[in-house]
Write a protein that binds this DNA or RNA. Structure first.
Length: 262
DNA sequence: GACAACCTGACC
DNA sequence: GGTCAGGTTGTC
């Protein structure tokens, strides 16, 4: 996509573009060239030669798809189609229609990016330790909080806590220094492995060419309730933590400070 | 911290 | 028919 010019913009769902309104978004994209791609937390960033930035959030079911063969079928879930120079297309598929697009001067003009915590792959171990120690929330809730760290979601939080052997309801400020360091290392390891595998296509996620990521096969607890833990043989449980389905192994992820209270 | 809301489809 | 979903906000 980098280097291509945006020659056509068709928005089929008026709820997609959050900012700016009134046709300014389409005008801001038309005849501009995509000069670089980036990401901040869960926002995709497309930098244009006008100096402006197109920020896209996929939310639950968004797929940003790119193809060079023919125009995509404008089906029910296709919320927008862009025609790029050379005849390729970029389109946004999103059944639940939660995805959001913005066009701004700088990424920080998107409120959630401005308030976002550090990138989990950029924060230092020391800073991570400090930040965790300042909080007394349940770890699952804390790691999902984008103002704490930008980019972690439900799958990778479940997997990182499992690998670190920490119960999702454990309070952040109850962790030992060693616990926090182990957690940091596993967060990084899970993310790197998942990126390497092209992501987790558990349900709707697809790569930009429409193919599935392979990391769903490597998940050890997420979506595996009732199955045996590969490490200790206990059955994986599904509970609710901070309103999200949460998978963990009762054998590997014990929580001393919660014993008897759950 | 709990819960409804935003939406739609898949699966039991 | 009920439940659930790689997410986030707003309200109580």
């Amino acid at each position: 996509m980098v280097g291509k010019r945006i020659e056509g913009v068709e928005i089929f769902d008026p709820l997609l573009v959050k900012k700016p309104g009134g046709g300014a978004f389409v005008r801001g994209l038309l005849r501009k060239r995509i000069v670089a791609l980036g990401r901040r937390g869960k926002f995709l960033l497309l930098f244009l030669n006008s100096g402006r930035v197109w920020a896209a959030h996929l939310r639950m079911t968004g797929r940003m798809l790119f193809g060079s063969e023919g125009r995509p079928e404008p089906g029910k879930a296709v919320r927008a189609i862009l025609t790029l120079s050379g005849g390729s297309h970029l389109w946004f598929w999103d059944t639940r229609r939660f995805g959001e697009w913005y066009l701004v001067g700088k990424p920080e003009e998107v409120p959630r990016i401005r308030g976002m915590g550090p990138e989990p792959l950029e924060i230092s171990r020391e800073e991570f330790v400090q930040r965790v120690r300042q909080r007394n929330r349940q770890l699952k809730a804390l790691l999902l909080d984008q103002t704490f760290l930008g980019g972690l979601g439900n799958i990778y939080v479940c997997e990182a806590l499992y690998r670190a052997g920490i119960h999702p309801k454990r309070k952040a400020d109850s962790l030992s220094l060693c616990n926090i360091k182990v957690l940091y290392d596993h967060i990084q390891a899970v993310l790197k492995e998942a990126i390497q595998a092209g992501g987790s296509s558990v349900r709707s996620y697809r790569r930009s060419d429409g193919s599935e990521g392979r990391f769903a096969l490597k998940l050890r607890v997420y979506g595996r309730d009732g199955k045996r833990c590969p490490r200790c043989g206990h059955r994986i449980k599904r509970i609710e933590v901070s309103g999200r389905g949460t998978f963990y192994c009762p054998g590997c992820q014990r929580s001393p400070n919660l014993r008897g209270s759950q």
